[in-house]
Design a binder for these strands. Sequence first.
RNA 1: GCCCAGAUGGCGGAAUUGGUAGACGCGCUGGACUCAAAAUCCAGUGGUAGCAAUACUGUGCAGGUUCGAUUCCUGUUCUGGGCACCA
Length: 922
Amino acid sequence: MELKSATQGTVRLALSREHKGYREYRTENTEFRILSMEYNFRDIEKKWQKWWRDNGVYKVSNDSSKPKYYALDMFPYPSGAGLHVGHPLGYIASDIYARFKRLKGFNVLHPMGYDAFGLPAEQYAIEHGIHPAVSTENNINNFRKQLDNIGFSFDWSREVRTSDPKFYKWTQWIFLQLFDCWYDRKRQKAEGISELIAIFEKEGNKNHPVPDAKFEIRNPDLEILGGNFSADQWKAFGAKTKHDILMEYRLAYCGHGEVNWCEALGTVLANDEVINGVSERGGYPVIKKKLRQWYLRITEYADRLLEGLLAVDFSESMKEMQTNWIGKSEGAEISFKLQAASRKTDGSKLTADGSELVVYTTRPDTIFGVDFMVIAPEHDLVEEITTVEQRSAVEEYITYVKSRSERERMAEKKISGVFTGAYCIHPFSGKEIPIWISEYVLIGYGTGAIMAVPCGDERDHKFAKHFGLEITNIIGSHYDGEEANPTKDAVLENSDFLNGMVMKDAISVVVNKVEELGIGERRVNYKMRDAAFSRQRYWGEPFPIIWKDGMAYPLDEKELPLELPHVESYKPGPEGEGPLANLPEWYHIQDGGVRETNTMPGYAGSSWYFLRYMDPHNEKEFCDRKYSDYWGQVDLYIGGTEHAVGHLLYSRMWTKFLFDLDLIGHDEPYKRLVNQGMIQGSSRFVYRAHGTNLFVTLGSKDKYQTDELHVDVNFVDGVELDTEAFKKWRNGEHANAEFILEEDGKYICGSEVEKMSKRYFNVVNPDDIVARYGADTYRMYEMFLGPVEMSKPWDTKGIEGVHRFLKKFWRLFADEEKGLIVTDESATNEELKTLHKTIKKIEEDTERFSFNTGVSAFMIATNELTDLKCHKRSILEPLVILLAPYAPHIAEELYQQLRASKVSPVGGDLQGASVVDTLYPA
RNA sequence: GCCCAGAUGGCGGAAUUGGUAGACGCGCUGGACUCAAAAUCCAGUGGUAGCAAUACUGUGCAGGUUCGAUUCCUGUUCUGGGCACCA
């Protein structure tokens, strides 16, 4: 027979079986059985996706009288593994919200792009010889195909790719602005470097002292002057000195910092790539090495980044994470004179001429509780103060520390350290205090040295106990001799002039005294360090910088983009620089200049991409001010918490910087941030008796000595293994497997929730889900799974319920025999109650991002209307529109059918119009 | 180690502001339709005892506040995310 199909006119169907009341058909092309007038999601989804694309339905204009709404996803890194079912979670949520806002009458910007620079593409190139540009392009195409299956309403005409020269031209351009600016602390904003030069020429730097960051290379001329210079001295400096001094002010500056260096691989490694002091690949030793690096002076923005959090709608925990990362603390720097009698390494005695150890403390009130000092192993004083007796022990310890990553140093429970042999003098009591070295003190924080107060600080206490050091109790009964007590409320004892004072009141007393004596000062400190902005890699933005005579010169704007040259080898350069250092013909330019051979890090492009979507094809500017003023902040930003402190802080800083330069009109990029949880994989295990091919079911595994093996979740039904499929798995690797089964004859697998990843064989591909159940079912199920913000494991089993709901919803409109069955009868009170209850519930749920309860509300409404046998247009039409953000294909199909049918033409010419253009009924 | 989350039936989860715990879905059990299966529909389903009405018990664990706690507080365990070159 012939059947009118919703998509392709007439489709020939072979009648395979006929039963009373229904018929079963089989199409020529698909093995799936369908029922006539059944919900045929494959045809419907294909049809509407094509229709939306062909008609540019989701193309958004920068010119509209409607209010704007900007709904943004964190753009993906196009990895070779493609999308798994977890990735689209946030995209579906933002798509639902974007569609909802469109229906509510907003002009919605909902773009998508690719964070296309990054390490994995380069690793892939090293291993497979495929150029990153090629693999990235392939990956992007694959991502796009997968995304297109799901029916998103992205405006693809605005797509950005960070690796596209048309895009990174502007990344480089913004970098040059950062390079060309300094931060004026008085006005709390970025200013041009030329203004700073004018100030120096007029008054030196007395009103604008050198900002202290951790990474600058100090110019010797400046060092001699103690960091201060007059106008005349400035004018007398040579070009190189001036260059170096300005470098200490620039917002993008060159300094030097420590990296994980692997000699055997000849390359710098990420912390992730270092495991227990050796490289993940190959297991070669890794040490700390100082390299010249670019940095962004994000520390200058620390206070504004903190203040900005007050004005944005982020979760409290997100704000807390950022606040803690910035780690603002108020305290004091205090100098301790070194004990003159201590002998230096060369045997000579330390002179008493003022060698000092400067510590940073947030608890000056505990100054009489200091029992020892601890300095970081990298501290400059280590070499100077270590005595002959302690020399070999110290050297041994430092070698040990060099092999340890920062992560390991922080995570270590074991206490380690070594005594330097030197002492310093307590400024008030005159007591001699031993100076120790330990890895728990980090060189990058404060002054890299602490005064240890074991009775009040837990780590100091453990250290003192471990090495049998004295513990002075200054807090009386608050200290029990077993555990440190960090209270601020105790009344001080054993504290000389502070005795009897409550600790928190004593803080300012001590600081005042210290300042009065000139041995220290009040100090604000941040845990956050300047952001390392260069990578010794290939697949990133080249720096538009030329080095000549040790000085950095920016490229002229007209020379941008500086394109990434093609390389044949991705091996690092001779001194551990990036692969670009192997291209002399590229980096050598006329009159002796050489190009910077480092590249920018992954977060460079992602720090501003949200602005480019507003004006993606502009070749004259990164974004026309007119359009950034129209779109303004991102109203809704969705992404994972893994970006809590990296990307989000960097992009907030870049936004503030561009705002300072008056290039955009807002100084916080995101108005509202929603963190989606991770969809985790649910891994399955089989247990192989050690050294055999005998596989033991979960219930009996303890009777054998077994090894745990991941098996592909795709042939495990729940926890029951399909043993035949297992035997065929991976080219019959386990073809000879034998099984010990449960009593009921099943093989039961173990299970565990893990990250969804190829290597755990727990990946579920959204393509498969969409092919089987359709995009609408997939979208709704992914939402139904639980709150967007929560992490949860994927389980395909429950999807049937959502699919059933859509079929049931369909049956409110269409009967397999009679076709469309919608009538024009007026609704009963009961039906109206269901409708209005549902509208209220779903609008509320959608607005507050509770999509899971929203989906439930649809199910409840559908069940109620089914029970009421309600097929009335006045009830169903609003429901369809309500459903459109969640399940756009089926909603579009049913809406169009309602409009096209002769059952009851309603007013208004909406023939051919899309649901997305239609407002909810008021 | 430090910072941030989370924990509720066999499973995913609901309870929006401290007020009937378990909505909705999966799974399971029984039934209708069918030669049969699928699909669809109906009923039941936290645990224990009971034919039942019902009773007791129950939101990771131990305490606390409250007339009342899944919700607030203190401590604790486990799981997940981050910790600066993965993105």
